[in-house]
Design a protein around this nucleic acid. Structure first.
Lengths: 333, 333
DNA sequence: TTGTAGGCGTTATCAA
DNA sequence: TTGATAACGCCTACAA
């Protein structure tokens, strides 16, 4: 068994209360006594037990983070952002990922409860009511990426970003711009698709339904989607994927078809993950401040903890995106 | 205040003991009673408090992970590996990163204690005794990447990997192979440098001290190191960086110098992070099973928790690396 | 099959 | 300036 406060107290000839005061700098303690306590604590290698502390203070000093999965650079950027903000406030990060369905989400949620003071949940595919039903009231929860009425959330302006990209491509002279979407069940994907559609309409471009193909945000789905698009009799001159991973998969497909990017097909992505800059040609993308996204979510959670939940429910932020033009469609036409 | 077991018990007309039995499936409970309890628990939205649970069971069901920082793909791969293994065992991951010096390491370590059942620590620069001095005995700790006598660790065979790469380059005909090292304070860096030196000697290559330049594992340091190497009157024909990030920085420098990879200079890295495949030309690298590294460390920690610490102290594993030859030096010479 | 009661390590409220 | 002592929410003998 580990050394407890009681051991230190006994050894130092004081009460646990005094030891507690020393470690929390709460209440007055005689200088001599404090020194003695610190000394014996050091000798005994005493370290306060965080769990017990949490129980009495009713605060864990921990923020839980629930992500869909950890694969891909997008999520690692989110984690970076979250962890940075969390440690800046001297809190801890309890990380959890969910791979399968809603049951697993619920299970993860429940095991997190009581271990965290607040929660950042990124769960684009799953309705917020599922989340709400499995959490005690009063636990600050901030949604990441998927805004739901009545819930605090930090989102990005997917629609505007997608529309801007389409407008950019149109400005380059493209009339047939394809979109590799992220799938019908995903909120981000839907918003990006909406932005694409709006911009296509506004610019009077080809609104051929065949130009929209569904993927699932993975590289391989981007690859498959691009193949389908390249097989079209009336091939698009530009392909805009709903995220960079799919764009990279598409890049591979274009190459395999013996075509060149951007000469034959311009290519654009969404997210601007670090790799986007390293592929050749470098990927034009809609930049998402991913790690600010994570940081903002954490701040929202922590603020909600302090202000009480009422303030938090209203606090929804939408971060802007911006276009990053690189070779993959800079010179295209 | 959240709903507690007591609330459920009162509402269901039973004692807390019975509620506890239901939730832990410990001890017998009448079917009718169990149903009633489950129903009222659901109605009250009761969720067991993990903190309180931890206090009595003396187990937190969480593994702490301490990493140097979260930047770069290497660490996100480690996190993936760790989280996967942790959740497979139905545990939790408490993530913590350390940016600055030893004091911060110590602080992080101490706040982790009492919140975790075991610890995975990746701290290549810092002596293990610092870690040991600040942890209660009996807490399973597995070092990641830096083996220290008497400590459980999961490491990779840095030296063999580096030597193999040099041998490969030598086989391609290179005689002047430069090494961008990772700095004197880093254990991995030292081992890779040792492997480089050994292989250079064994193959009877140019052992010019000017061919070894220190970096610090960042891309920009790789860039700077490569510039210095290219400025040498007798330029190396191959540059082997101690990690991929530095290799990518070097790639940029080579390009900026108007030279071609691999025609003018062959380039190789270490780690085989995902980007390595995407840069152009694709990077030849020593593949490190990064996320297996994380997974193994977690398993070692969890095993140590079960078997008692004695078994763990001996459990050190070294994972092999393998060469991944790609364009950046495949055809070079 | 169910209830009672003590304890886990800490904090916090009173007294002293 | 210090010490008893009652929580905190849960688990677990031990009784009933």
């Amino acid at each position: 068994m580990a050394v407890t406060m009681r051991d230190v107290a006994r050894q130092a000839g004081v009460s646990v209360a005094t030891v507690s005061r020393v470690f929390n700098e709460s209440g007055p303690v005689g200088e001599e006594t404090r020194q003695r306590i610190m000394r014996t604590a050091g000798a005994l290698r005493y370290v306060p037990n965080g769990t017990a502390r949490s129980l009495t203070t009713n605060t864990t000093e921990t923020v839980g983070v629930l992500l869909p999965n950890l694969y891909g650079e997008f999520y690692s950027e989110v984690i970076r952002g979250v962890e940075g903000a969390v440690r800046a406030r001297r809190y801890h990060t309890l990380l959890s990922s969910v791979h399968d369905g809603p049951e697993e989400l619920v299970a993860a949620l429940r095991t997190l409860v009581g271990r965290v003071d607040g929660l950042v949940v990124m769960s684009p595919d799953i309705a917020a009511d599922v989340i709400e039903a499995n959490l005690p009231e009063g636990l600050p929860v901030v949604l990441l990426g998927a805004a739901v009425p009545g819930h605090a959330a930090v989102t990005i302006d997917n629609e505007a970003g997608a529309a801007a990209m389409v407008a950019h491509l149109a400005g380059l002279g493209h009339r047939r711009i394809a979109h590799v979407a992220g799938g019908p069940g995903n909120a981000d994907a839907q918003a990006r698709l909406a932005g694409y559609r709006r911009a296509v309409a506004e610019a009077g471009l080809d609104a051929d339904p065949a130009l929209v193909v569904d993927g699932d945000f993975t590289e391989s789905s981007g690859h498959a989607a691009a193949r389908a698009l390249l097989d079209l009799s009336d091939r698009p001159t530009a392909v805009f994927a709903a995220n960079d991973s799919m764009a990279i998969g598409a890049l591979r497909a274009v190459r395999e078809a013996g075509l060149d990017v951007p000469t034959d097909v311009a290519l654009a992505g969404f997210d601007d993950i670090p790799v986007a800059e390293y592929v050749t040609p470098a990927l034009t993308s809609v930049h998402v401040p991913i790690h600010e996204l994570g940081a903002r979510a954490v701040e929202a959670v922590l603020d909600a903890m302090l202000d009480g939940l009422d303030g938090a429910a209203a606090t929804s932020t939408t971060l802007p995106t911006r276009l990053v033009v690189r070779e993959s469609c800079g010179a295209g036409g």
